[in-house]
Structure formats: C-alpha cells, structure tokens
C-alpha cells in the first residue's frame, strides 16, 4: 500500500465518497452519495453539474474542507480520509483550491506579496530572499507584473484577482488543485484568458486538476475526462470529447442542449432537450433513477430499479436504463433519440 505511485497509478483516488448533512428533526441530506473517480498525474477531470448537484461539496470533501461521512480519498499513496488534523498539515501543501469568487477569496487587508508569501512561510523553510524569488516567479507564471506585490486586492479586476488566487494555489507546487467554478464569475473575454492560463500552467507543472463547473463547454475545453453529477451522484463519466459529442445519459444530453450554438440559424432549428420540472429535493430523492422525474425518456423501470453503470466504449459509464431497456442504446448517444426524427423541436419533458 505504500508503494510510490508509478505510471498508471492515479494521483487522486476517490472511492464511495459520501457527505451527509444533518438538517435537523432527524433528517439527513445526502449531498454526495457514493461518488467514485480518479484523476491521473497531470490530468484534468471536469466535474459538471448544476446547483444542488453536490459537485462543490465533492471538491471540498476531497480536500477535507468538508468532512466526508464515508468513503476513502487517496492522494498518491497517502490516505487523506481518517488522517488526524496534525497529520493533515503536510498534506495541505500538496492539495490546493481556487474558489469561484475572486473577490472574497483574497484577504483585503494583506498585500498581494504577503498573501503569496503566507503559504511559503507556513509550509517551507525557505529564507526571506528565496521566498521573495518564489513570489515573483508565481506572479510571472500567472502573467502579472512583479510590481504588484505591494498592492492590495481592491486594486485589481476580477480576472486579475483570479490570477492571484491561482498563483497562491500553485506557489507550493501542489500535486492536486481543486478549481471550483474558477471562471464562472468572470466576463467572457477574461474567462478565456484564465482558461488558457490554467492549461498552460498544467502543461508546465504536471499538476492534477479537479475542475468543477456548470458549463459543459468550458469543461470540454479544459478537461481530459468529464464526470457529470446529478443530485449527489455521478450519472455519466468518460473522455470529454465523447461525453460532449455523444452523451450517453439524458441529463448530459440536456446540459449539451442548453449550450447555445453561436450561429442563429442552427441554434433556432436544432433538436434540443429542454428539461421540465425542477430538481427534486436531495432530502427526498426519487426512487430508482434520480433523474427520472425530469427525464423525457423515463420508463416504468426507471422508478423501480437504480440504473447500473453501463460501461461505454472508450471508457467511462452512463448510469441509465436506456442502454438496456426501451430503445436499448447499448452505449450509444442519447442524441440519436432526439435527432432521429422521433421528436419535434424543442423536446420538452414534463
């Protein structure tokens, strides 16, 4: 169990992760319910879902910023879950996080230089000069001027702040960085700058990224593999290109449909899945398949049996009965049900 991770050994391994919140009156909310995945060295796994899916809680639980209720998390050969807080400390250096809101994640009373120096002071024995060199280097990595070290966060735009947050996360050369909606709060022109920056950094540093987002298109661009989450569970995983182009779960197909094509003619004539209803409360999830109450293809079996993880060509799975029942997709894309002339535009489920 203590072998050094060689080629093929995942950098992050998450098994049957559960996070349950006590919401009073004996009720429990299963925010994350039996989630398993891995991230290889230098790889980006995109974790996609909407609000309430449990994607951010998953990211927090991986870092133990939220305490998992059950399951195991391994970083390299170290089991993260179950470590005492004293033993967590050296691990903090190896795992970092970047949050969505660059306005609240930086300390307004500290200069940029101080904020970047802080982790070095805590986690390394570098001299003052060495630390200063590292701070300059980190700013350079995120393409900010080293003159900025004496300035305060309020002097920066959202995009610049997010660069600073990334510099702070990368300064200890971590093995894993959880990026929780890192570009969602940014304007589109800035968003693309940050996405490209992250891709560049990763290529250099070989860091493993867990990239959490609600936007399937952004995830497709930055992630090698994608995992789609709905109501606390993974519904589909696989190589990002396949997940995006040939979604095997109706929810993934609906997320795909929800991304407008930047071409007015095609956008207005394409077949789409438009979901009806609201996401059910995680306090009282539907029986069988949790997506069935909003699924346009729901069948009787979906209420009765929890769908198994149907393996897909090229890796990954879809937890959906459509592959073995009804149209028997056998691992094929759900989009063929929409585009095959079975349905009119737009397909609205109810």
């Amino acid at each position: 169990m203590t072998t050094t991770p060689g080629a093929g050994a995942p950098k992050l391994r998450v098994e049957d992760l559960e996070v349950t919140f006590d919401v009073g009156r004996g009720k429990k909310l299963h925010a994350v319910d039996g989630v398993s995945f891995h991230v290889d060295e230098g790889e980006t796994l995109g974790l996609v879902g909407e609000s309430g899916s449990g994607k951010s809680t998953t990211g927090m639980a991986v870092l133990r910023l939220t305490e998992p209720t059950a399951g195991r998390v391994h970083l390299g050969d170290t089991e993260v879950t179950g470590l005492r807080s004293r033993r967590m400390r050296p691990l903090r250096k190896r795992m970092q996080i970047v949050f969505q809101d660059p306005y609240s994640s930086l300390d307004p009373s500290m200069t940029i230089g101080q904020q970047l120096d802080e982790p070095l002071k805590v986690h390394t024995s570098l001299s003052k000069d060495e630390r200063r060199a590292r701070v300059d280097e980190a700013l350079d990595t995120v393409k900010l001027s080293t003159r900025y070290t004496t300035r305060y966060p309020n002097e920066f735009s959202g995009g610049q702040r997010q660069r600073i947050a990334i510099a702070r996360a990368m300064i200890l050369d971590p093995e894993l960085v959880v990026l929780d909606e890192p570009v969602s709060a940014l304007d589109v022109s800035t968003q693309s700058q940050i996405v490209n920056l992250l891709l560049g950094i990763q290529e250099q540093a070989r860091t493993s990224f867990l990239f959490i987002a609600h936007d399937l298109a952004v995830v497709r661009l930055v992630s090698d593999r994608t995992a789609v989450m709905y109501l606390g569970q993974l519904v589909e995983t696989g190589p990002s290109a396949r997940v995006y182009d040939a979604p095997a779960h109706p929810y993934t197909a609906a997320l795909n449909s929800a991304i407008p094509i930047p071409d007015p003619d095609r956008q207005r004539t394409r077949d789409r899945i438009v979901l009806g209803g609201d996401q059910p409360s995680p306090l009282n999830p539907p029986s069988g398949c949790r997506f069935r109450t909003r699924c346009p293809f729901a069948m009787p079996v979906c209420a009765e049996e929890v769908p198994p993880q149907h393996p897909l060509e090229g890796g990954g799975y879809a937890a959906c009965h459509l592959h073995t029942h009804g149209p028997e997709l056998r691992g094929g894309s759900v989009l063929q049900l929409v585009e095959g002339g079975h349905l009119t535009t737009p397909l609205v489920s109810r």
Binding site: G159, V188, S189, A217, L221, D263
Partner: peptide, 19 residues
C-alpha cells in the same frame, strides 16, 4: 472567446487581452 466557438472550430480558445 466563447468556448462554443473554440469547440465548433476545433481551435484553441482566444481571449481578448487586457481589461
């Protein structure tokens, strides 16, 4: 700068420099 454009064209994402 739209992710969809990059995906449609199979090109890398192009940002607008500056603020």
């Amino acid at each position: 700068a739209m992710p969809q454009s990059a995906l449609e064209n199979g090109s890398p994402l192009v940002g607008i420099p500056g603020v």
